[in-house]
């Protein structure tokens, strides 16, 4: 039964009772954890959308000086893609009940994410070294804020990754970690998409 039909029911009619009285209470065919993550992703998406809207709103004025994006960001993007791919492989392994595959690919995913974060810091360093301080120009401030916010979300993801990793090394069965691996992977893909959107915004507009 889709959501719209559920909202069209007439609860005051007793004839409907036989139809609906036994239905289990779920609205969507999703586990609580998966729905919880999706709701959270929507909230995060709103945060980034508003920041991007603010960026565009400011950018249309004539006194805008774009930040010269360090070439390192291209490399970081590739590393983040690797990270996402590795997490995806971990998820596939989890579905196939291969605990060794889960372990290896989880390690790889987390490792690439860490390398990405270090790469971002190096990119910051490069900008600061050439005098593009946050306080000098709104464009610089936006660059630092957007990348920092994305990085903070990735660090949050690494906390979840670390907890999953701990479960795997403790020897929890694949069945127990499957949901954690899946949630991590979805979050990783989501942050990759956010990064691609941010990067594109700063490159092309």
């Amino acid at each position: 039964m889709n959501l719209l039909q559920q909202l069209m029911e007439k609860p005051w009619l007793t004839e409907d009772n036989t139809v609906v009285e036994l239905r289990d209470g779920r609205t969507f065919a999703l586990s609580r954890e998966k729905l919880g993550l999706r709701v959270f992703l929507v909230v995060v998406m709103v945060v980034f959308s508003l920041m991007m809207a603010a960026y565009i709103e400011r950018k249309v004025f004539s006194d805008w000086h774009s930040v010269p994006l360090p070439w390192l960001l291209w490399l970081n993007t590739v590393i983040l893609v690797f990270s996402s791919l590795a997490m995806h492989r971990a998820w596939i392994s989890a579905r196939r009940t291969e605990i060794d595959g889960v372990r290896v690919w989880l390690y790889a995913g987390g490792f690439f994410a860490l390398v990405f974060l270090i790469g971002q810091l190096l990119a910051w360093w490069e900008l600061v070294a050439s005098g593009y301080y946050a306080a000098v120009d709104p464009a610089n401030a936006f660059f630092f804020m957007l990348t920092a916010l994305h990085g903070v979300h990735l660090i949050g993801g690494l906390v979840a990754w670390w907890r999953t990793m701990a479960k795997v090394t403790r020897g929890c069965g694949v069945v127990l970690v499957r949901i954690s691996v899946e949630l991590c992977t979805v979050y990783w893909h989501f942050l990759l998409l956010i990064w691609l959107a941010l990067f594109a915004l700063m490159l092309f507009t």
Partner: peptide, 15 residues
Amino acid sequence: VTVLQARTRGMTLMR
């Protein structure tokens, strides 16, 4: 999530 997924049996959205 509690309202959407943890309702008891028979507790439809419109109830």
